[in-house]
Deep mutational scan, measured.
Amino acid sequence: DETGKFLVLALYDYQEKSPREVTMKKGDILTLLNSTNKDWWKVEVNGRQGFVPAAYVKFL
């Protein structure tokens, strides 16, 4: 149950560059965990948590 969690859509592919980031593919649906930083949002994708560039995702 994803109640209270926001979902975001990956607009572009992103390859993680550090262990704190996660890789996503364009079209992936991600669970948004934290968006307090304007540049990097914490998400969960494929069972992994990490950061992606905020400009690469949008709210569903």
Rank of each mutant, 00 (worst) to 15 (best):
K42R: 12
R20C: 14
K58M: 15
L30I: 08
G27W: 04
Y56V: 06
E2H: 15
F51W: 14
A54I: 03
E44A: 09
Q15D: 14
F51G: 01
K5A: 12
T23A: 07
D13W: 03
K38Y: 08
L11R: 07
D13V: 02
F59R: 11
W40I: 03
S18E: 09
S35C: 13
K58Y: 09
K5S: 11
E2I: 15
K42N: 06
T36V: 11
E21N: 05
K58N: 08
L9A: 06
Y56C: 08
A55N: 14
Q49F: 07
L9P: 00
Y12G: 06
P53C: 03
N46G: 12
L33K: 05
A10Y: 03
V57C: 10
A55V: 10
V45G: 07
D1R: 07
N37I: 06
M24Q: 01
E2N: 13
P19T: 10
A10G: 03
L32H: 02
R48Y: 06
N34L: 08
A54P: 05
S18Y: 06
E16Q: 13
F51R: 03
A10H: 02
E44W: 06
N34K: 07
P19V: 09
V57S: 00
K17R: 12
K26V: 09
E16H: 08
N37L: 09
E21L: 05
V52R: 00
F6W: 14
S35I: 10
D28Y: 04
Q15W: 11
S18V: 05
V45R: 12
K25S: 10
K58C: 14
T31D: 05
D1Q: 15
L9M: 13
L11H: 04
V22R: 01
V43C: 04
T3A: 13
D1Y: 07
L60R: 04
V57K: 00
S35V: 09
K25P: 01
D13Q: 03
K25C: 09
D28F: 04
R20N: 14
N34C: 10
V52K: 00
L33G: 01
T23Y: 03
P53H: 02
V8L: 15
R20Y: 14
L9W: 06
L9I: 15
L11F: 04
G47W: 02
D39I: 14
L11W: 05
Y56E: 03
S35A: 15
T31F: 13
E16C: 10
F51S: 03
D39V: 13
I29Y: 06
M24F: 09
Y12E: 11
P19E: 12
E2S: 14
Y14C: 02
A10E: 01
S35D: 12
T3Y: 14
A54W: 02
Q15I: 15
L30Q: 01
V45H: 15
N46I: 04
Q49W: 06
N46T: 05
A10S: 05
P19C: 08
A54H: 04
T31A: 08
A10R: 01
R48H: 07
L33W: 04
F59N: 08
T31S: 09
F51C: 10
F51D: 04
L60D: 07
N46H: 12
L11V: 09
L7G: 03
L11E: 06
F51T: 03
E2L: 11
V43N: 00
V45L: 15
T36E: 14
Q49C: 09
T31H: 11
V43A: 02
F6C: 15
E21A: 05
V8M: 09
L33V: 12
D13T: 05
M24K: 00
S35Q: 11
E44N: 05
W41S: 03
Q49G: 06
F51Q: 03
L33P: 00
N46S: 09
